[in-house]
């Protein structure tokens, strides 16, 4: 900013003083009183008010140097306004629906439809009764495939980044499992009901219980092994256990866990499968947590 008006006024005051003394401004130094007079006059010197354009230009020049407000402050203010923020399994479930991608949901649905069509054709070729064992044996396997696929990336950097999010990693895994398994159960129910239209000659509830019990056990085993190691190991273990159950069923052993409705040990077999699932979760969750905290991911 220029000091021109001030300089001008000083010169004018000096000339006025010189005129009073009848000499020229440069002839002698000012007296203390004269200096006081000049100071008093200068203190009331009107300051030029900058124009609006000048003020605006100054603001624009300074703007790049002003730190931007942090997004975190905005985010935290907004979070605080959301009553009772849910950091729970329910809150963790919702993002999992998008995490698995549209293709996953579509492919899974198509797979179930394919099994349903195969079941219907099977029933046409043999007897309506034979479709019951067919879907009972096929549906749990589809759930194993789904869970194994959902956890196929537990050795990837993407999973590592997911684990560094505020949601507890075990909760994240259980949330994903819940979404995938619930979808599998929903599709399996639709297939069972659809085939029921073609006279299964089996009680629908009993049939659904027959596939639900092994499905939950096998899917849970797949979850724990997939998270601890990877999806391939998890689904392989699920398949292997299912094969053991099938062999036991085909050999008609006394404790056949896959006994069909009406056969000996049917209800007891299903109760044992549910009990095993509960036991597995009691042991599996702490084991999975320990694995998540100590896991070693090979780096490339």
């Amino acid at each position: 900013m220029s000091d021109a008006p001030q300089e001008e006024k000083i010169q004018r005051l000096l000339h006025e003083l010189a005129e009073d003394r009848q000499d020229t401004p440069d002839d002698r130094p000012l007296t203390v009183d004269e200096l006081r007079y000049i100071m008093a006059e200068l203190s009331v010197l009107p300051t030029a008010v900058p124009s609006e354009a000048m003020t605006q230009a100054l603001i624009e020049n300074l703007r790049p140097h002003v730190p931007e407000p942090r997004f975190r402050s905005t985010m935290e203010a907004e979070r605080a306004s959301i009553a009772g923020r849910l950091v729970s399994l329910v809150a963790a479930i919702q993002p999992q629906v998008s995490a698995l991608g549209r293709q996953f949901w579509l492919a899974t649905a198509l797979l179930y439809v394919a099994v349903g069509v195969a079941g219907w054709m099977y029933a046409q070729s043999y007897t309506p009764y034979s479709v019951g064992p067919f879907i009972m044996f096929a549906l749990p396997l589809l759930a194993v495939v789904g869970v194994g696929f959902a956890f196929r990336g537990t050795q990837s950097g993407y999973w590592e980044a997911e684990r560094a999010a505020p949601i507890d990693p075990a909760t994240l895994a259980i949330a994903r499992f819940t979404v995938v398994t619930a979808y599998a159960i929903a599709l399996a129910t639709v297939i069972t009901l659809a085939l029921g239209v073609f006279r299964l000659e089996l009680h629908l509830g009993a049939l659904m219980l027959s596939w639900l019990a092994p499905l939950l056990l096998l899917a849970s085993i797949t979850l724990f092994l997939s998270v601890r190691w990877n999806g391939m190991i998890g689904s392989s273990a699920g398949f292997a256990l299912w094969s053991v159950f099938l062999i036991m069923h085909s050999r008609q052993v006394r404790f056949d866990l896959l006994a069909l409705p009406g056969e000996d040990f049917w209800l007891a077999g299903k109760i044992i499968l549910f009990a095993l699932t509960v036991l597995l979760w009691l042991v599996g969750v702490p084991w999975m947590r320990r694995g998540l905290a100590t896991w070693r991911l090979e780096v490339g």
Binding site: E160, A161, A164
Partner: peptide
């Protein structure tokens, strides 16, 4: 973990999103 941002060394992805 709510206060951190983490980029792992491994940048493999498994999702087709």
């Amino acid at each position: 973990r709510d206060r951190i941002g983490y980029k792992p060394q491994n940048i493999d992805v498994y999702t087709n999103e």
